[in-house]
Amino acid sequence: MAMLTGWALYAAIFFTPFIQEDIAVIGAATASLHDAAPTALILPAVLTGLVCSDAWKYWMGRLARRYEWAHRFAEKPGVSIAGDLINKEFMQTMLTARFVPGTRIPAYIAAGFFKAEYAKYILTLTATATLYVAIMFALFHSVGAVAGEEAKIWLPVMAVLILACYVAYRWVTHRNNKAGPMTPLSEEQDHPMPDMPGFDDTPYETAETDDNKKE
Rank of each mutant, 00 (worst) to 15 (best):
L4V: 04
Y10V: 11
A11E: 00
A11I: 04
A11M: 04
A12P: 02
P17S: 04
Q20V: 13
E21Q: 09
A24T: 04
V25H: 02
G27T: 13
A28L: 00
H34R: 14
H34W: 11
A36Y: 04
P38F: 05
A40T: 12
L41Q: 12
I42D: 08
G49E: 00
L50S: 10
C52G: 07
C52S: 15
C52W: 10
C52A: 15
Y58M: 06
G61T: 01
G61C: 03
G61E: 05
R62M: 10
L63S: 15
R65Y: 06
R66K: 14
A70P: 00
A74C: 14
P77Q: 04
V79T: 07
A82L: 12
G83T: 02
G83N: 01
I86F: 10
N87E: 02
N87V: 05
K88I: 07
F90A: 01
A97Y: 08
P101D: 05
P101V: 10
G102P: 09
G102R: 07
G102Q: 00
G102F: 03
T103Y: 10
R104H: 10
I109Q: 00
A110P: 03
A111L: 03
A116S: 15
A116P: 07
A119V: 15
A119S: 14
K120M: 14
Y121H: 14
L125C: 11
T126V: 15
A127M: 13
T130K: 05
Y132I: 08
M136Y: 01
F137S: 04
F140I: 12
H141P: 01
G144L: 14
A145R: 13
E149D: 12
A151K: 03
A151V: 06
I153N: 05
W154K: 01
W154E: 01
P156A: 09
P156V: 02
P156F: 05
L163K: 03
C165W: 06
A168V: 09
A168P: 04
Y169D: 03
W171F: 15
V172R: 11
M182Q: 14
E187I: 09
Q189I: 12
D190H: 01
H191R: 11
P192G: 10
M193L: 09
M196Q: 06
M196N: 06
F199P: 06
F199A: 15
P203A: 03
E205G: 10
T206F: 07
T206L: 13
T206Y: 09
A207M: 06
T209Y: 07
T209K: 11
D210V: 12
